[in-house]
């Protein structure tokens, strides 16, 4: 599928994320599903839409075929497919995720913390320093956006058109995607 309308692309990403969240729910991964729904379908969509108000809505059409890109994608896909053969069997009790510290967490969370959600126990207590790192990464993201967007914009505004009132925008309508 090829979409030049960036708004449609953003919506497709949101739908994809929501479907993944549903998939995680089916796999009983409530925490991951909640995160995927909140981050993928919620926040990143709204941020992409906010960015789209600063850019053109339609991608520039580029002629011809990019055979190099196709080659890279095919090779990477083949390598990933080959690597997948080495993955442990899905849900098998002796795959690495179940065999190492996971078993310790499952056995001790009740005695150590007295809380039923093992994901919260692992994230906030057993692996607390990892989570602190994540919190700092999020803070750093805010700093980066702040550093990029806090100053006044330059005089030249490439490709930015004036926003028209919604009623008129609907009446005139911009050109459809190629």
């Amino acid at each position: 599928m090829r979409v030049r309308d960036l708004f449609a692309a953003a919506m497709l990403f949101a739908i994809y994320s929501l479907l993944s969240a549903g998939l995680f729910t089916v796999l009983d991964a409530g925490d991951v599903a909640l995160t995927e729904a909140a981050v993928g379908a919620g926040l990143s969509t709204i941020l992409v839409l906010a960015v789209l108000t600063l850019a053109r809505r339609y991608e520039h059409p580029t002629g011809g075929h990019n055979w190099l890109a196709l080659g890279v994608v095919l090779v990477t896909g083949a390598l990933l497919g080959y690597a997948m053969l080495d993955l442990p069997e899905f849900g098998s009790p002796d795959n690495p995720a179940q065999a190492h510290v996971g078993a310790h967490y499952v056995a001790h969370t009740g005695d150590d913390m007295g809380i039923p959600n093992m994901v919260a126990a692992v994230l906030a207590s057993y692996r607390s320093i990892d989570t602190m790192g994540e919190a700092f990464v999020i803070f750093a993201a805010a700093l980066a956006v702040f550093a990029l967007l806090s100053d006044r914009p330059h005089r030249r505004l490439p490709g930015v058109r004036k926003r028209r009132p919604i009623s008129r925008r609907r009446a005139s309508g911009r050109g459809p995607s190629a």
Binding site: I46, A50, V51, A141, A142, V145, L149, L157, V160, R163
Partner: peptide, 25 residues
């Protein structure tokens, strides 16, 4: 942190659009 960062990033983008509109005006 997460709540404030999300709101902050959104605000910065919206404010940038506002500044552009003002400049165009």
């Amino acid at each position: 942190t997460v709540a404030m960062v999300a709101m902050l990033i959104f605000t910065l983008f919206v404010r940038r659009r506002r500044q552009w509109d003002d400049a165009l005006d």
